[in-house]
Design a protein around this nucleic acid. Structure first.
Lengths: 328, 328
DNA sequence: TGGAGTGCGCAAAGCGTTTTGCATAATTCG
DNA sequence: CGAATTATGCAAAACGCTTTGCGCACTCCA
């Protein structure tokens, strides 16, 4: 910048002002300076800006695993919005809440490497104390999964309860009465709400807790079959577990949906690709990401989250081939 | 830091030295300072460090779309390695080389927001001039896809040629002679190599160019069927197109693999979930990401890429259910 | 014609580190 | 025992930008 100032015969102040527009600059001078900036290919140094302003124009996103399709979609949404608002995105895979990694990323907020954090809780909720401390003094928004202990933070989630009702009503209407719920981790809000929604229609449904991976759907259904537990419908609290359940059922010689109806939740990419397609609840995950980023950045720029309202993103029932009338 | 220095009754210099260890400090003083640091919860300001050192300890990753499973895996690998080497990761989805976005991210390197860039070329190779300029003066490593015009940069790719040979040999051995190749974009190295490998076994195979999306596999096979083009095997240059092809074949009443053998490339998550499983070439995508990050950071820390060798990551043939002997 | 603006520009003070050049005291060596 | 080290610590200079406080020259209104 000094270089530009020298070449233009002005002070760095003037150059800075022509760039920021915070003080008037003679149009003639401004043009000359702008031409030189162009010519020199000058760009302001991010580090200096950061130090001076105390803001990095970077936000962080913590997800359990960036290579999971679902969280990838969230990341995409966050990144889209961040980009639109001229922020950069630093991603942090917590790898299921590896404390060392989480600590590292929380430190990013302390060192003011990032101006705020979008946090998506994963399998186990660990290090909540750390998060709580960080959130007490820095901008944090919870995406996809609310956390009771941090209820004061703004959050963005899907209509889990309503989604569960929709799909449960659908299955009920097909005549099913004996259903099993393959739920997620017990402590998660999403799990609780989804189970509650399903139970409005199937009050006695058995609830088994899985870990959101395909294998756990496979294994849990295996246990049921081994015990001759009677059921005609399986509710997966996410699509992966539902798909695992389908595989296990098939291996056992049962047909889907003729013998057993299986439904999921999420509508991940795979759900529409398998045959038959998985009946599930579509979540607008990109929107969750986008909205989270917007709330966060709004809060950062406003300097407070007092005026920031949490958001619930609507869901849709998507009926495909894995749900059918109960066998008579 | 001033605060710590005051509390300890020393100068900031001494505090800085106890932290960095670049000058000896009296053990007694050091202990006292460390305790105070702990007590105050002091962490050095990232912006100030960045300005002073000229390094941000951040690297960038540019991929076409972070929510694509394949690129998500690359991101995971890059992030893992970056984390191990104590670097942060800024992700940049280029959304198929949207020039505005690319420009923005290239600027991150200019503003020295990031110390280097892992670049994964997408569908269309645009803005190469920009990349070329950036790469001339800053650390850039190409991941997953080499680029001829930038052959001087270090790169990390899969053994595309060998992988194509493996799968082609497999299909040839099943007795097939009439094959069709659903290739990717014509200009990409991976496309060229994969086609070349397949053609060693099927010299006359028809080559159709798709865009790596499921729909294009579907559409291209549709064209073939509409023209009664005779074939018994389809090579997808990635799994998504292969899956699209399978769907179209099935809709046309053809069975896979009884009537037509279909194979892919990548071994994405979906490939093992569909029924039957997709025969394909497994790429170790996470390793591509990890290696790229390592090369980049090695280069950054060495101050030069002269000693950095490009890497080819091995692939495996994965035989599943979509390939079978030619119908007699 | 004397204030009261207002348009433009400069100098200088930070922002929070790291690093360099000196001091001073303590230790070692020939 | 004098000289050469070594150990320890401080002051001050960067790093490249933004912002604040002033000054100077106009213009405007009564």
């Amino acid at each position: 910048m000094q270089q530009i100032a020298d070449a233009a015969g002005v002070s760095v102040t003037t150059v800075s002002h022509t760039m920021s527009g915070k003080r008037p600059v003679n149009p003639e001078t401004a043009t000359r300076i702008k031409r030189l900036i162009e010519e020199f290919g000058y760009v302001p140094d991010a580090g200096a800006r950061h130090l001076q302003s105390g803001r990095s124009r970077m936000i962080g996103l913590a997800v359990p695993d960036i290579s999971n399709w679902y969280f990838g979609r969230i990341a995409r949404g966050v990144e889209e919005m961040a980009d639109e608002l001229d922020y950069g995105l630093i991603v942090c895979s917590t790898f299921n809440s590896d404390p060392r990694r989480e600590k590292r990323y929380f430190n990013m907020i302390r060192t003011r490497m990032i101006d705020g954090l979008v946090y998506t809780a994963g399998r186990q909720i660990s290090e909540m104390n750390e998060l709580e401390k960080v959130a007490a003094s820095s901008p944090v928004v919870l995406a996809d999964e609310g956390i009771d202990r941090l209820s004061s933070l703004p959050w963005v989630t899907s209509e889990n309860l309503e989604g569960a009702r929709l799909v449960a009503a659908h299955v009920r209407q097909l005549g099913h009465t004996r259903a099993v719920i393959i739920a997620g981790f017990p402590g998660l809000n999403s799990t609780i709400e989804r189970v509650a929604g399903i139970r409005e229609y199937f009050p006695n449904a058995l609830v088994l807790n899985g870990d959101f991976e395909m294998q756990s759907g496979y294994d849990l259904v295996g246990d049921l079959l081994a015990n001759d537990f009677p059921f005609t419908a399986v509710f997966g609290c996410n699509d992966l577990m539902a798909i695992g359940a389908i595989r296990r059922l098939r291996e056992h010689g049962l047909r889907v949906p003729e013998d057993v109806t299986v439904v999921g939740f999420d509508d991940i990419e795979i759900a529409s690709v398998i045959t038959p397609g998985l009946t599930t609840v579509h979540q607008d995950v990109v929107t969750i990401g986008r909205t989270s980023a917007r709330l966060l950045i709004d809060g950062i720029e406003a300097g407070s989250f007092d005026a920031i309202e949490s958001v619930v993103v609507p869901v849709d029932l998507v009926v495909r081939g894995t749900s059918g009338p109960v066998a008579s």
